[in-house]
Write a protein that binds this DNA or RNA. Structure first.
Lengths: 163, 163
DNA sequence: TATTATACATAGCTCAGCTATGCATCTGTC
DNA sequence: GACAGATGCATAGCTGAGCTATGTATAATA
């Protein structure tokens, strides 16, 4: 590494430089993990689709546009994703009683099953790489994921507006 | 869940089912983070390219094929990436003295700078979302990243050794 | 009722990544 | 040392995800 000069000694605040390195590392390792997962499971379904299903699973039915924001894709992209998901009956479109332009997109039983199966496949594919971890280490990762969820879930919206 | 029979009873091991959930969560949150990063920084350069530069930065010069494995892309894809990187002079191709078919791909000064700048941009873009974290929480994430690195890098090292 | 805003759909493009294959070089066997 | 197969990279061509721009229908409002 080339720019290691700026190691500060403060106790509580995290200097931006350090955060930068941390976050870029995270993005790197994370992206690698995604690729490993994709290759290991021979995935044909796009990550965005799984993310969409996850969002529906976590937050319940919502409009297509909202779903697009949550899943971080453009509205036209979400239109495609939803169309595909509809075709395989992983979701249902429910007419919005208050607004004839809109749909509520809801997870269908098949979608729930598919999501579960995906998670299993993912776990099976990746587990061998993580088999050496002990309880504590798994716990660290688990807590980190929770933190990342917190940080990316809610404020996401604010940051998006700013950009 | 198909192969849950093999869950051992030792106290320290983590059942596959839990790992599955954990890992799928990780992949989800991770992918979201990637998209946030991409959108926030208005990235035009592909993640694979940054990953390639990171690998070179961490492990030093290596062959194109090896780089492909490390970065988890196919060899033809890496050929493209390297061609692009070469064009903007972020890497240099060094003829391999032992094998006229091969090149050693090395990070060039411009590439080092570009990588640093990317990390900064990433940090600046994402830092606001993580500003509320205290030292301990940052530490948890940091340790998780280390663990992930270990778990995903292992074979990488073998591959490196092999060469 | 006419105008503007909003929600989703469609069209068309770009680019990353893949497989299949080609070409050059290396390695091993006779 | 020459030929066969293996290996390293390049090229061709395809697919699919994502985007912007725009269209169409409905809402909201003056």
């Amino acid at each position: 590494m080339s720019n290691e000069i700026t190691t500060t000694t403060t106790t509580t605040t995290t200097p931006t430089s350090e955060l930068s390195e941390l976050l870029s590392d995270l993005v790197s390792v994370t992206h690698r993990l995604t690729r490993i997962a994709a290759q290991a499971t021979g995935e044909s379904t796009s990550p965005a689709t799984w993310r969409t299903l996850s969002v529906l699973s976590s937050f319940g039915p919502m409009r297509l546009g909202e779903l697009a924001k949550q899943s971080r894709v453009s509205q036209p992209t979400m239109t495609k994703i939803v169309a595909n998901l509809n075709e395989v009956e992983w979701i249902r479109r429910i007419a919005d009683v208050d607004d004839a332009r809109a749909w509520q997109i809801a997870l269908a039983p098949k979608g729930i099953r598919a999501l579960d199966e995906w998670r299993s496949r993912l776990g099976e594919a990746l587990a061998p790489m993580f088999s050496d971890l002990d309880r504590d280490e798994v716990d660290v990762i688990s807590r980190a994921i929770d933190l990342l969820h917190e940080c990316t879930d809610v404020r996401v919206l604010d940051v998006v507006k700013a950009a």
